[in-house]
Design a protein around this nucleic acid. Sequence first.
DNA 1: CCCGGCGCCTGAGGGC
DNA 2: TGCCCTCAGGCGCCGG
Length: 269
Amino acid sequence: MPELPEVETIVRELRKKLSGKKLLRLEIFDRRLRRLRLPLPLKISSVDRHGKYIVVHTKKGKLLLHLRMTGRLRFAKKVSRAPEEKHERARFYFGGGVILKFIDSRRFGTIEWFDFTRYKWKTEKLPELGLNPMKGEFNAGSLKDVLRLRSRAIRSLLLDQKIVAGLGTIYADEALWYAKIAPGRKSDSLTDAEVKRLVASIKRVLRLAIKKGGTTFRDYRKTGGDPGGYQFFRKVYGREGLPCFRCRGKIKRMKIGGRSAHFCPACQK
DNA sequence: CCCGGCGCCTGAGGGC
DNA sequence: TGCCCTCAGGCGCCGG
């Protein structure tokens, strides 16, 4: 599941390879993407991340990609005419013989084009996002403010992209473990000290995961096909029944808000 | 407005 | 070995 660190890793690779290049041609293999139309050719000015969205900037508009669950981007040198991999959904051809494949077995991934001439008066279509955890705007004060407005399980709030942009199941669980906060705690019950720990924990785990190139649990790969490395540093995600690295308690898995959360009941309070 | 629940999808994995 | 069932989970949408 690509979350902020995985998307950031991909964005950095795309930025390096695509900045200044021209997108010449687009091939669509999946009916779900058939409505996508681009004013080609398009010169790529830069590549950015917004939460879990990949944003490709051009003068004419923005291309928004979301990998959802199983989406992958893979650079290729030479390709045959038909889709080469089982789940190749689209293919981008750039100048200089650079080819980028969009592969997505579950088909939840999206590619959207926001044309500047049109989206100026249709801004409501752009995804609405909460605090950016990699920026200074994300601090104990700002997080406390949004957490106090609600009374839901903290785990559910952390997954809400309108509250904090970029966390998914893996890093929400990891951050709560570092902060020693139980995932089921009501958001408005957190003390100032706990919110402070949570902010530090989120920043810490995201930074480490970016440094490791993300978590490869199943589908995620970098654009060259290599796996990330954070899975070797995991504290709770996917460690059900194994001993807690902090207190030796047994890691538990529990449904919270319909999604399974991993945590240590002994040391997360 | 807010929240919980469902649907979208397909492959993996468990039970028998 | 093979079949069937459940589960995985980001996010949009719907309805209470």
